Simulated scan of single mutants.
Amino acid sequence: MLELTDLCYTYPDGTEALRHINLRIAEGEKVALVGPNGAGKSTLLLHLNGVLRCRTGAITVAGHPIADESIRQVRAQVGMVFQDPDDQLFSPTVFDDVAFGPLHMGLDEQDVRGRVLRALDQVGMSGFERRMPHHMSLGQRKRVAIATVLSMSPGVLALDEPSAGLDPRARRGLIDLLRSLPQAMVVSTHDMRMVAEVFPRTVVLAQGQVAFDGPSEAILGDGELLERYGLERP
């Protein structure tokens, strides 16, 4: 579903953010992306739907390489959910936010409405269509942000720190939601308890490189590895 081959990226100021990243993610596979701050996790996520473009290497999504001529198809396939939902929610109502993507796909009104209602139902936000996002809790806004990408029917979800800032009840609801969704996922997180519950596979980034890629239980049970990469035991 998603393949990164020898991906390298250097920021304009000369900071080397990603070095020779090679990853393959299958359809429906849930992968946690962990590591210390500055390891390159968010930079990697921003490459998955072309927000950033690799200087060296290649990325393919469902067999389509990320390029100018394919960027619309790629962004329809890879739904990016930012850490702060306010970076994603900008319309007067929840309905308008979730409808934004399908409308720009050129779908008719009935199809758009159907997609919005299905996406809100998936994230447990049915009945909130006419609510104003900035009047809702952080947990509710995060769910609506996920709905904005689900309405595009993506094959891959890329989420940046989805549980950050949530209270225990909202965090539990988010975990249950992520476990229920069928899409492939790449999720950057420091929440190792969420990793243990949701993600069978973990990729550790350190200094822009893949330091570990394997079963989550292998790293979660290895105190030395956790300490080496600054990760908490769940």
Rank of each mutant, 00 (worst) to 15 (best):
R19Q: 15
H20A: 15
E29G: 04
I71V: 14
R75W: 06
Q77K: 08
E29I: 06
A26K: 09
G57D: 07
G114H: 04
S126W: 06
R131P: 01
V74E: 08
H20D: 15
V51W: 04
V78S: 02
A39G: 12
D86M: 08
P92I: 00
V31S: 07
V98E: 00
L120Y: 03
L48M: 09
R131V: 02
R53Y: 12
A26H: 10
S91D: 06
V51P: 00
P65D: 09
T15G: 10
G40K: 05
T15C: 10
R115P: 15
F95H: 15
V116M: 05
G14Y: 09
D84M: 04
A119S: 14
A32Y: 02
L45K: 03
G106W: 10
E129T: 04
D68N: 12
N22Y: 07
K30H: 10
V81T: 08
V61G: 04
A76M: 06
F128D: 03
Q110D: 14
R19G: 11
E109G: 14
L103N: 07
R113Y: 07
D121K: 04
A39Q: 00
A58K: 09
Q110T: 15
V112P: 10
L48W: 01
S126E: 11
L117E: 08
G114T: 01
A67E: 13
V94K: 00
P85S: 13
M80H: 09
Q122K: 09
G101F: 00
G38Q: 04
M132F: 05
P65C: 11
E69L: 01
S126T: 15
L107S: 13
R75S: 12
V94M: 00
G124Q: 03
P65T: 14
V74W: 02
F82L: 13
E27M: 08
G14L: 08
F90K: 01
S137A: 08
V78D: 02
H135V: 10
R115E: 09
D121L: 05
L46H: 10
G79L: 07
R115L: 07
V78F: 01
M132E: 11
E109P: 13
R19K: 15
K30M: 08
E29Q: 12
P36G: 13
T93D: 04
L107M: 14
A76C: 08
G28P: 08
